[in-house]
Amino acid sequence: MESKVETMAVKNKAKKSGILKSKMYTMLLALVAIWVIFTITTDGNFLSTRNLSNLLRQMSITGILAIGMVFIIILGEIDLSVGSMLGLLGGIAAILNVWFNMGAVTTIIITLALGLVLGFWNGWWVAYKKVPSFIVTLAGLLVFRGILIGISKGNTIAPLSEGMKVVGQAYFPSVVGYGIAVATIAISAYIISNNRKKKLQYGLEVSPKRNDIIKIVLIAIGIIAVVAILNDYSGFPLPVFIMIIFAIIFSYMAGSTVFGRRIYAIGGNKEAAKLSGINVNKQVLMIYAFNGLLAAIAGILLTSRLNAGSVSAGTNAELDAIASCVIGGASLAGGTGTVSGALVGALVMATIDNGMSMLNTQPFWQYIVKGLILLLAVWADIRSKNKK
């Protein structure tokens, strides 16, 4: 019975893939348009290698949060606490490193473990105590921020040790950057090929093979171009590499594993998933734990990049993560979403922040623009469903 539900989840996901692709292409065109506008208004400075490197480093924080958030949204749940969780875990990392003189490795291990614990805490209330995720994570938003203010006494904690600063500020040399590009292209080709095999296995319609080849070629060109730009500045940023690693892992998990199919099955129809024998509570708990782990990684990277832990770190980061997922095609109703879409959404959000900062635009305009983009993205999702 379970396999039937998982098969149905694969078929439903395949049916929605056309809509998701259409949204993705639309979003990419919108992103290109935004880049053109900022390039013109900044006299070409937006496309400088230095700024593009900084843009991707900025994006890596939101991107990592969006990877975890998209799985929660696919489940049909939400997490409003990741911004405060990021701030708290980043603050704890700074306290351990600065006040207790712990080494970078020990600090990172403890922070990641605490991220899992906080994720389990949210997941336990949602899965086993049946408290709505909106309420659980809204409470977490307040509790985690309060704990951060309490343990830091409202102070900025700095400076970090050299070992901790490396995590958020290091660059790979050019040779390593091109090695990363080759590996990423090979893995992307494997994932595309494997998804094709899965569709054939379940008797689903597949596009001509040449389309997949064209997709792989375009991905390869894009990746090599990005690496060339980054290498022209200082090299491949370590935070971007970390984001790519987790993007690949979670993309594979979503598209090529039983665990991923179960997540889509739960988001598509939770009651049917339960009746099929899927342990829904366990799946929800695990996803929230993964989300806590990714929040810990984002917190470490942000603290390392800023060389300080701050009580304001991560403020509104949860909104950027949610907006990234929705802009990238995820549906708040559950059952729909991809990691790649969430990353495109994260790039859009980072682009707006970066471009408007370069234009010395007052901060309130950034909130207004991002809010309107989120509203339009949700409206477009609802409109497409109504048409269907």
Rank of each mutant, 00 (worst) to 15 (best):
V70N: 09
T361C: 04
G222N: 03
A273N: 07
S384G: 00
Q201P: 01
D381Q: 02
G314T: 12
L306Y: 03
A93H: 03
L347W: 00
S84C: 01
G68R: 15
C325A: 15
N45A: 08
V284C: 14
A94P: 05
L118N: 06
S256D: 08
R262S: 15
E6L: 14
V206N: 07
I244K: 00
M356A: 01
N194I: 04
G91T: 02
P132G: 05
A333D: 08
I78D: 10
G146C: 10
D320V: 07
L52H: 07
N45P: 01
S340H: 09
F100R: 03
N155I: 15
A346V: 04
G292P: 05
E318Y: 13
G119I: 05
I242D: 01
K129N: 11
G119S: 04
A272N: 09
A295W: 03
G90Q: 08
A33E: 05
I278P: 02
G168C: 11
A228K: 14
G140T: 05
R305Q: 09
Q362D: 02
S312R: 07
M27S: 09
A273P: 10
A228Y: 13
L116W: 04
I249K: 08
A380Y: 06
L238G: 01
S384H: 04
I108K: 05
G235N: 10
L376E: 09
K4D: 06
G277P: 11
S81F: 00
V32Y: 01
I214Q: 04
L375K: 08
Y252M: 15
P159V: 00
N122M: 03
I214C: 01
L118C: 09
I297C: 03
K270Q: 15
V5P: 08
S152H: 03
G154N: 09
N155P: 03
L114P: 00
I149L: 13
L28S: 07
T303Q: 02
G140Y: 00
